[in-house]
């Protein structure tokens, strides 16, 4: 049961044509989807704590419609891979992904999920170097761990990808970081 054999093959995933395939209706659907993403509570390691923090009062992901964290993959459409994916865990990740109903999206949160992060070193034997070896990833959020702002930005990008338009203002480039200087 080598992890490699379990890789979900993207081209094989056939998504049937939507019943209602009229441009404007689809746009409305996409808009609704992007504004009410239901992420799966799928915490793997340290990054999961930041994912929890994002759901709590200070960062409040509910402002952007994605606060309904579901423990069951069957009820969610966004998988936030928050942490290191080990080879032992890989089959479970793939299975969870396959249990999610389409349309579904994946966010790789943190360096571990992107590329193995700090745990890629000579003689490492146990981790997947990036969850995109297993399942297709839509948004990559770098950081170790990414700050909650990073996760939110990742969510905006995903919304942009789904609905074709960014809804929230860009973070000011010379804004708060320069304050007081």
């Amino acid at each position: 049961m080598a992890a490699q054999n379990l890789v979900a093959q993207k081209p094989d995933v056939i998504v049937a044509d939507p019943l209602l395939n009229i441009g404007p209706a689809k746009q409305i659907m996409d808009l609704c989807r992007s504004m009410s993403l239901w992420p799966m509570t799928f915490g793997l390691a340290c990054c999961a704590i930041e994912m929890m923090a994002v759901g709590m009062a200070r960062w409040d992901i509910a402002r952007f419609g994605a606060e309904v964290f579901r423990p069951s993959p069957r009820q969610s459409d966004l998988m936030i891979v928050a942490g290191t994916v080990t080879k032992k865990m890989a089959p479970a990740v793939v299975r969870l992904y396959e249990q999610m109903p389409a349309p579904r999206w994946v966010m790789a949160l943190g360096n571990c999920a992107i590329s193995g992060g700090p745990f890629k070193f000579k003689d490492q034997y146990g981790i997947m170097e990036g969850v995109d070896h297993l399942i297709p990833v839509d948004v990559y959020v770098p950081g170790c761990p990414p700050r909650p702002e990073g996760l939110l930005e990742g969510l905006f990008l995903l919304q942009e990808k789904i609905a074709g338009k960014r809804f929230w203002p860009n973070a000011p480039l010379d804004g708060p970081f320069e304050e007081g200087k």
Binding site: L44, A45, G83, T84, T86, K88, M89, A92, F119, F121, K122, D123, Q124, Y125, G126, I127
Partner: peptide
Amino acid sequence: YLHRMHEKMAEV
């Protein structure tokens, strides 16, 4: 399921 092998890493 989250065995990242810190102890080996310490030898690197």
